[in-house]
Amino acid sequence: MDAMNHFARLGLAPSCDIDAGALENNYLALQKRHHPDGTANGTVSERRLAMEISSAVNEAYRVLRDPVRRVEYLCRLGGVDLDSSDPNGGAPTMSQSFLIEMIDRRDALEQTRARGHAALDELRAKVEREQDDALAFALVSLRSGSIAAAAVALVERRYLQRLVGEIDGEV
């Protein structure tokens, strides 16, 4: 992994509560300083370095400006990679009762769909609120130092996000 984490890359302390203004300002300043155009007359290695830094800055900004990605990234810095299914250090396995609930709610989707747009919109709004609640719970957990609890909440959020996808008819 990159020696410099996304927070350090953008001159911020790792935290769930970043200063949005500082993120924006630091990003713009760094982007300007390392813009590949600035080294157009430089050597090959200078140009390459500028390009590498510039793309690392963009990636860090992309992750940190997104509240969900930011919290997921904090989990990763804490040793839990939600994109991995490795039993050690990967996303936590959810309880059977949660998975059963996820199946049942997807099963029930057809009936909701048959009841029309209003019912579907209502369900969608409810699941989105649940997603927000899960994210809020993850934040509370992280602030109190419980990465494991935050990771479970974030995985729950991913399943709910997927449920919204099913509501919208995505495959």
Binding site: M102, I103, R106, V155, R158, L160, R162
Partner: peptide, 13 residues
């Protein structure tokens, strides 16, 4: 058997 893929949110029974 009920299992899920945490990374993408797929569920399988």
């Amino acid at each position: 058997g009920i299992v899920g893929a945490p990374a993408c949110g797929d569920v399988m029974k």
